[in-house]
Design a protein around this nucleic acid. Structure first.
Length: 141
DNA sequence: GCCAACGTTGGC
DNA sequence: GCCAACGTTGGC
């Protein structure tokens, strides 16, 4: 099981918006970057990801789960752009900010810290554990 | 709102 | 196939 990180600007699509979509979730459309798309192609149903708010907040606010494997992005004119569907799973007890991640030595290799522009990122198992620890655990929805 | 970092495009 | 120019993202 691999772990992931999904980045979104909360004024465009926030974690609360994803929660509002319920069990069916929502397709993670709009990605037009090969690295991010390839990450989504590698995802399997049931794998989990961090939900990160960029620009506003700059923090991990929740956990989501992949509910459908990569399929063509219905908002793209070219079917080469694919996306997965995700649903909200849990809120973190305490948001973990980018600054938190930057000062945590165990997260020094994290993609979020080193390549802030990639919108869909892999998260290493130990990084996942550290984030959850900093978040003080999660609250199931 | 600025700018650095990065990815993509297109001319050669 | 290289690289300069350009566009976009996202932190500050």
């Amino acid at each position: 099981m691999a772990f992931w990180l999904f980045k979104s600007e909360p004024d465009v699509f926030s974690f609360d918006d994803l929660i509002a979509k319920g069990e069916k979730g929502e397709q993670w459309d709009g990605v037009r970057n090969y690295q991010a798309r390839n990450n989504m192609r590698a995802m399997q149903v049931g794998e989990r990801g961090l939900f990160y708010h960029s620009n506003i907040g700059k923090e991990v606010v929740g956990i989501c789960e992949v509910v459908a494997p990569a399929h063509p992005d219905s908002t793209a004119d070219d079917p080469k752009w694919e996306c997965v569907d995700i649903k909200a799973l849990a809120r973190v007890n305490r948001p973990v900010t980018l600054d938190d991640a930057k000062v945590e030595p165990r997260l020094s290799k994290m993609v979020l810290v080193n390549n802030s522009r990639l919108s869909v990122q892999p998260v290493a198992d130990d990084e996942w554990e550290v984030i959850l620890e900093l978040a003080g655990g999660t609250q199931e929805l």
